[in-house]
Computed example of a mutant assay.
Amino acid sequence: MSTAVGSAPATRRGGLLATLRAYLALTKARIIEQLLVVTVPAMMLAQRSVPSLWLVLAVLVGGAGAAASAHALNCVVDADIDAKMARTRKRPLARDAVPRSHALVFGLALGAASAVWLGLTANWVAAGLAVVAIAFYILVYTLLLKRRTSQNIVWGGAAGCMPVVIGWAAVTGTVQWPALVLFAIIFFWTPPHFWALAMRYRDDYAAAGIPMLPVVASPRRVSRQIVAYSWAMVAWSALLVPATSWIYLGAAALGGLWFLVAAHRLDAAVKRDEVVQSMRLFHLSNTYLTGLFVAVAVDSAVGWPVFGWPF
């Protein structure tokens, strides 16, 4: 009798923890980490020093909430295809760990709360941009593009570029040209990043009926596109030099060269019809972006503009 009574609270605790883990999984927390990595350097560049810690914390909390909202709503829309892909079939809605109606309310509530939070703690420009990012990710990428075109991640990926603009706006109340350059760097970084992943999981995307470029195009065409976008990314990274210093310039040059070599190696392997290790480029892309934005942060704290132009 005592064992049965004692096990009831433990069972309830276990059920509560499982539910909390399921809701956390809806937010795709690992992706949020990457989004926040680029936000703080953008804020530092806008401030040309370290912003107040309170503002940084407020923007990180609001930005995380906005990203979590978009990801949860994405899970609601994509529950059917997530269940068909080995990479995503363990997501909460794909295995019915959370009712879809509850996940929908959860996502909408997170979005509203994050916008209000940003408006009250930063400014309403940043709040409005966060709402635009959520709406674009769900309405344009998830509902309109993802299942219809191989260019889904190119244009839909613009939502993932918004954290730098939101961070900049939180500091200045405006959107100036360096914020747009940062936006473009991530915009051109996104296709090589995701297409490298999609090359590895091509069969998964095909099974789910998602026309990612590696599903509908030849490996040769995909590798050429990766090289083209990689060059565009590196070229755009150079446009930030007038607002930075030699610290950023050195990091952008070395990092860009490293990335281009890797992209061309992948293309060469495809030409030779060899086994392509596309995940190497995928992981390198994460390292590249992190390193580039760390350089922006360090440069903003201790560097001086190369041409003496504040912006």
Rank of each mutant, 00 (worst) to 15 (best):
I166K: 05
I134R: 01
R100A: 15
R91L: 02
P92W: 06
I81G: 08
P92F: 08
V165K: 00
L144G: 02
V105G: 14
R87N: 05
T174D: 15
D96P: 12
V171H: 08
H102F: 09
L93A: 00
A109L: 13
L108I: 15
Q151V: 12
D96V: 13
A135Q: 05
G160L: 09
R95P: 05
G111E: 00
A83Q: 14
V98I: 13
R91H: 11
G160P: 00
I138T: 08
Q176K: 14
G157D: 02
I138C: 08
T172A: 12
M162V: 11
L104M: 11
S101V: 12
T88S: 12
A159Q: 05
A83E: 11
G156S: 06
T88F: 08
R87A: 00
G157L: 04
V125W: 13
P163T: 04
L120E: 13
A127P: 07
G119M: 08
W117Y: 15
T121Q: 14
R100P: 15
Q176W: 13
V116N: 01
M85F: 13
G111Q: 01
I134P: 00
V140D: 02
A86S: 14
A103D: 03
A135D: 07
R91E: 03
G157A: 05
S101P: 01
V140G: 03
A109E: 01
P99I: 07
L104I: 07
V116R: 00
S150F: 14
G173Y: 08
G173L: 11
A83L: 13
L108S: 12
A115S: 14
V175H: 05
R89Y: 07
A135L: 15
A112P: 06
A127L: 02
R87D: 08
L120P: 02
A126F: 04
A122F: 03
A130Y: 02
S114P: 04
I81K: 11
K84T: 14
G128P: 07
A133G: 08
A86C: 12
R148P: 03
V164T: 13
C161G: 08
R89A: 13
V132L: 12
A103Q: 03
W124N: 04
A103E: 05
V105D: 09
L145P: 00
L93Q: 06
D82R: 04
F136N: 01
P92H: 06
R147Y: 10
S101Y: 09
A159M: 11
T121Y: 05
A127T: 06
V116W: 10
A130T: 01
G160M: 06
W117V: 02
T142F: 10
A170M: 12
H102Y: 11
Q176N: 14
T149W: 09
A158W: 12
L93R: 04
G111K: 02
Y137G: 07
K90F: 15
L110H: 01
T174H: 15
G173K: 11
T142P: 02
K84A: 15
I134Y: 06
R147I: 11
V98W: 02
V105L: 10
V98D: 00
I138F: 04
G156V: 02
V165Q: 02
T142Q: 10
G107S: 02
A115W: 06
D82I: 04
M85C: 10
A112E: 09
T88L: 07
I134E: 01
A109M: 10
